[in-house]
Amino acid sequence: MIDIVRQKISKLLSDGSVKGVVALAMANGHVAPCLFQKEDDLEPLCLGDTKKPGDARYPLNKVLITIARQYPEDVFGVLVRGCDERGLYVLYRLNQLEPDKVMTIGIACPQELAKACECKKPYPDELVAGEKTEGITQQGVQDMEDMDLSKRFSFWKNQFSKCVKCYGCRDICPMCFCRECSLECEDIISKGELPVDIPVFHLTRAMHMTDRCIDCGLCDETCPSGIPLRLLYKKTSKIMNAEFGFTSGINKNEQSPLNLMGPAPEK
């Protein structure tokens, strides 16, 4: 698979269609985001698989935003999985990246990773390498909904009180691009206090994620307290889908019902 990806990147760089490609590189045994600019420098390219498939994924879209803000005229390539591609669509909608300045190199996730993620669509629309595997139903949210109310309450209270307020979920999130964050607004979130305001802190973030979360799972992976944040955001996505028929990142020209005037669209 990696050879096909390498060939594709090499081609994009050699024919000048992109200025650089944001992907992952392996150096000294560590995986890191990297900007490949020369076709003969592609040796360290990797897909973020070390012990398990996709266990060293990084928010490449976030890297792309950083670079694109500095070089708005140039076209860049980016390595994307299904979730990353959804993220790009959301970022196009929110005007953080321009679709005609981005070229994707899409890879499909193996079944093992898709299962671990409970990913509904573990492959991008534009696939370069890998085999499409089937989407997984999101049992986790259902299990939580099946619990009774007081059980849910104690579950989340327990989870939220573990939070050390590292803001890692926000910092790693490829959909978080604000210069000022509501979670640092002292009127909403008290500063320098632990445990965090339950459930304000996590629900505020969840509400900001409702029409954005593309279910990449990086938040879960980076949380030092092991709070199942992804489950929380999966629920927001489920609500958005049930209420408004909306799935974030489902297509390039999507519109969020929350950012449209007037009543909720017909389901």
């Binding site: 560590h30 060293a56 990084y58 976030k62 950083t66 500095q70 590292c166 910092d171 992976e221 030092p224």
Partner: peptide
């Protein structure tokens, strides 16, 4: 980027922190 620090990202392959950081580290 061009000599200016832009972000901190925890290292996922590090056995110490396994892709996690505290607020100071971030």
């Amino acid at each position: 980027l061009d000599g200016k620090l832009t972000h901190t990202t925890p290292c996922k392959t590090s056995p110490v922190n396994e892709g996690k950081l505290c607020i100071k580290g971030w």
